[in-house]
Amino acid sequence: MQNFDQQLQHHKEEQQQKRYPHTEAELDKVILSAVQDGSLIEHKATFPENHKQHRLRSAIAEAAVLAAIIIPSALYLHNRQIERELTTIDIDGQRIIFSCNKECDPAEVLDNFKTIIK
């Protein structure tokens, strides 16, 4: 077994060798998504804070914001992560596409969304 100093040094070296594991193109997508989301988050103030799931709240809030405030035609592709499942909903004939966590139930997302925008 290594002593403490050896372990700490090992940990430092491991940390400093760790690299972002995805490609440049994937990083560009994440950056673009963060710029979009970082701008949208400013509009979330009116969204209820007590929702049970932060990630779900985030997805719903962004869709709600887009529907209510930003884009009248409400066609939006939220490209948060490549692996995210996309959910499409129709509100008054206007299509909104947004992504949500893979663990989220799209039906629950839709129910919550409808409640919020009533």
Partner: peptide
């Protein structure tokens, strides 16, 4: 990846 994205959002803001 989620955390990375969240950090980028805050850096942008």
């Amino acid at each position: 990846e989620d955390a990375f994205h969240e950090v980028l959002c805050n850096l942008w803001k």
